[in-house]
């Protein structure tokens, strides 16, 4: 696999992909992001984390939830290098990475994101990563990640 440059575009992906359409269930997640806090939904009754947000707990069915702050540290659970642009607006962004980050402090939930400051060929499953915020518009602040502890 060729190692591409690590000079990523800013933002990492085009801002129009991040025109969000939250509903009542997902709005709190994005509100917290906008305030620079990664908070994961947790069931108040049984304490099970869930992501993406759902109106009830998959484990016990309870509807009361709370939003627990995560430090944003975790490990790469899986990843892909995307070479083919499926839409015209990402043509100048390929190849780009997509990573699945398993958070260390949120019951094993995974966040779909991108890893900044790393060449595609250097991404490995299990590598430690940490949260970095990328504001893509006045309303949208996206959780992205970078290699940690290195």
């Amino acid at each position: 696999m060729a190692r591409e440059t690590i000079s990523n575009p800013t933002p990492y992906m085009p801002a129009d992909l991040a025109e969000l359409a939250p509903d009542g269930v997902t709005q709190p997640y994005w509100d917290h992001c906008n305030q620079g806090e990664l908070r994961i939904q947790r069931c108040k009754a049984c304490g099970t984390f869930r992501h993406p947000p759902l109106p009830g707990c998959p484990d016990c069915g309870a509807r009361d939830d709370e939003w627990v702050r995560s430090e944003g540290k975790g490990r790469v659970f899986s990843f892909s290098g995307v070479y083919h642009p499926v839409l015209p607006n990402v043509a100048e962004y390929v190849p780009y990475n997509v990573v699945l980050v398993q958070l260390a402090d949120a019951g094993g939930v995974r966040i779909i994101s991108n890893l900044l400051g790393v060449a595609l060929g250097d991404i490995e499953i299990g590598m430690p990563v940490e949260l970095v915020w990328e504001r893509v518009s006045p309303d949208v602040n996206l959780p992205r990640f970078r290699p940690a502890g290195g």
Binding site: M13, D16, L17, A18, E19, L20, A21, P22, D23, V25, T26, W30, H51, P52, S80, V82, V86, L87, V90, Y93, Y96, V98, I112, S113, N114, V136, V140, L142, R144
Partner: peptide, 22 residues
């Protein structure tokens, strides 16, 4: 491209589309 064109229509795709997973 179907999952990519869901912009502004689907709260579920907000969790993957902004990151180019579509």
């Amino acid at each position: 491209a179907s999952y990519g064109r869901a912009a502004r229509s689907d709260p579920r795709s907000d969790f993957h589309r902004p990151f180019g997973l579509m």
